[in-house]
């Protein structure tokens, strides 16, 4: 079960966002519409996002952090 919140697109990314209730509590389900990859964020994680300082996600936006990385690359 998932209630649609909506789709958000920019020139760099397109995501569909839903509130998923398959688990023992609600989660935000985020689908990357270009690849179909799905991730979940729970309320405590989302609250943390609300308090992110400017640039707080910059480290995670590094394309080589986990999505595009060489097999032998050090983490």
């Amino acid at each position: 079960m998932a209630d649609e919140v909506g789709e958000l697109s920019s020139e760099f990314a397109s995501v569909r966002v839903r509130i998923d209730t398959d688990g023992n509590g609600p989660r935000l389900r985020v689908e990357d519409l270009r690849t179909g990859h799905v991730g979940f964020l729970d309320p405590l994680e989302l609250e943390t996002l609300a308090w992110l300082p400017e640039g707080g996600l910059h480290k995670l936006l590094d394309p080589s952090l986990h999505r595009w990385r060489a097999e032998d690359q050090e983490r």
Binding site: G23, N24, G25, P26, R27, D42, L44, E45
Partner: peptide
């Protein structure tokens, strides 16, 4: 406290 939930972390 809640009898069940979904969370990656407990505060």
């Amino acid at each position: 406290d809640a009898p069940k939930g979904n969370s990656s972390a407990f505060r």
